[in-house]
Nucleic acid binder design. Structure first.
Lengths: 167, 167
DNA sequence: TCAAATCCCATTGACCCCCATCATTTCCCA
DNA sequence: TGGGAAATGATGGGGGTCAATGGGATTTGA
């Protein structure tokens, strides 16, 4: 499962938007046919992820001190405010008004891949921020320490399906 | 998987360009039949890599703190701006207009091998830069410390294919 | 009973598949 | 070693298909 690229789709007058085919393909082994969205706490954007990733977040929160303020806050912000949005027959979701308003989305939605997760933006807001990101990365001389290549054999499936598919 | 050499191909009027046979051969065990391209931070060029290399980048980012600013910038710059481009039946890709414009590509594309990755250039821009690079290397008297030969047995295949092709 | 959500179908345009041609390299044999 | 034939890779272009979109009809739930 890997989300990459920026895909701009139209928000129609019924509040629907198509989830990019590539993103749907990355999720086709999920038990829930749809996505989760919640408000980003850093940006004027929406955080998107799969159902199983949501469970991963919940499990991570479990490990924080049960009564810590931090865990409370994170639980409220992420789990409490997340929306579970199923596809319609054409692979679209309905963007709740609350989220449209929060992200200041108008008639277009940018789906931006971030690897295991993705974000939804008003494209007009995202574009300048992305340019700024690029500039900072360049100035910082940022490099990414890559994990050892041995863990990424060509053609390997990250999560082999249960049992079928004996090719 | 190793990308070497410079291969110049034509960009046709439909925005397609053939990926060099040698590069495709280096990728023939990938689960995704195509390449990823994103804008270089430093040069007027496009960075190219395999799908598994992209997975490797995502996994490496995943390990950085979920909310770190640096990880955010890198995700926007690399994952968010990358294009996943499948081959057509003839081993060509469609170069998105955005990338053609960024790299100032006209009617020709130079594929330049860089080992695990490669770059795409407008040949007219790349040539003088390559000459300058060669000159700097000579003047500097640069040397490269090689890894022990024992790690690279002759004739070994990095990942032996399943079973066919007993030539 | 009304509003909202879901289903269904029509339209359109970009992309992908297919085939035909051309150039180059490789191979074979004189 | 040279020439010609065959194979392979690169290029050009037409048309069918499918993803994205729009809107009506039906169902669901408050």
């Amino acid at each position: 499962m890997l989300f990459t690229g920026t895909h701009i789709h139209k928000l129609d007058r019924k509040g629907r938007v198509s989830v990019p085919k590539r993103f749907r393909a990355a999720l086709d082994q999920e038990e829930f046919a749809g996505i989760h969205l919640y408000q980003s706490h850093k940006e004027s954007a929406l955080e998107g992820c799969s159902h199983s990733h949501m469970e991963r977040i919940a499990a991570s929160l479990d490990e924080l001190d049960m009564f810590s303020d931090e865990a409370d806050d994170l639980a409220d912000t992420i789990l409490g405010s997340s929306h579970m949005l199923p596809y319609d027959g054409e692979g679209r979701i309905i963007l709740p008004a609350e989220l449209i308003e929060f992200a200041r989305i108008e008639d277009q939605v940018a789906f931006v891949g971030r690897g295991r997760t993705f974000r939804l933006w008003n494209p007009d807001i995202f574009k300048p921020l992305q340019d700024a990101s690029r500039t900072r990365t360049l100035n910082r001389g940022a490099t990414l320490k890559l994990k050892p290549m041995a863990e990424f054999p060509q053609g390997a499936r990250p999560v082999p399906p249960t049992g079928e598919d004996a090719s």
